[in-house]
């Protein structure tokens, strides 16, 4: 009974979140050299706002959204009851502990386990929100380990445009801005490709989708 109640509340909340995101951002997904698919994928994107994965999640077709889970920081998501509920039941986040000293489970293992259970994932390889004037922070090595261990999984670069303007850090009122999520061609680890080379290529793929680099939709 309780389970059912949680399920219903979670599904209603998911829809409310999606409609709110659409109302504020009129978000649209643009698929460049790739089509939406149920195939097992890891979507990796630039990270400027806590709403990033909600936006990415919103533009995924519903049947794909159902099996796609964000990888998120436990220290952010388990701070209040509401956030814990959303994190655990609504978006079913893979919650990882960013602090190597306190953590009991290896984040990479958790991510691989989630993939093996059949989920696709949303990942922000910068590791934290980008508050600088740079377009992106350097990627953490997690994406590389993932590509190495699960070579069959498609790694899909994504660019999220404008969301940082909706709700800059420290503000509480979201401002409606038209936002876009752009998906690029899937990539894999190439034979003999080293960690640095792979991460640099991944960063390049994401940046190539940003509007200043011709990622604007014709």
């Amino acid at each position: 009974m309780m389970d059912l109640l949680v399920k219903i509340t979670a599904s209603v909340s998911a829809n409310a979140i999606i409609w709110f995101a659409r109302f504020i951002t009129a978000v649209r997904g643009t698929w460049v050299n790739i089509t939406p698919s149920r195939r097992k994928r890891v979507y990796f994107a630039n990270h400027t706002s806590n709403g990033d994965f909600i936006l990415l999640w919103t533009v995924l077709p519903a049947h794909i959204r159902k099996t796609t889970r964000p990888v998120a920081a436990a220290d952010y998501w388990i701070t209040s009851k509401l956030k814990t509920f959303i994190g655990r039941h609504v978006v079913k986040a893979v919650l990882i502990d960013r602090n190597p000293k306190t953590r009991t489970e290896d984040p990479i293992e958790m991510i691989l386990a989630a993939l093996d259970q059949g989920s696709s994932l949303i990942l922000f390889p910068e590791g934290r929100r980008n508050m600088t004037n740079e377009k992106m922070l350097p990627f953490k090595p997690g994406l590389f380990h993932l590509a190495e261990n699960r070579p069959e999984v498609e790694l899909v670069p994504c660019w999220i445009e404008n969301l940082n303007r909706v709700l800059p850090k420290g503000e509480i009122i979201p401002i409606p801005f038209a936002c876009t999520v752009r998906f690029g061609a899937p990539m894999h680890l190439q034979k003999g490709e080293g960690k640095q080379a792979f991460l640099a290529r991944a960063e390049q793929q994401v940046l190539a989708l940003s509007p200043a680099n011709g990622g604007n939709d014709g």
Binding site: A26, N162, R165, P168, E171, I173, I175, P176, F177, A178, C179
Partner: peptide, 27 residues
Amino acid sequence: SFAGLREFIALTNTKRADHLVLAAAFY
């Protein structure tokens, strides 16, 4: 008007410092 303003504002040079101005415009 709301939808149009949302499209228009996305093209402007507004900065973080304009957050309250934009909130006032919309709400």
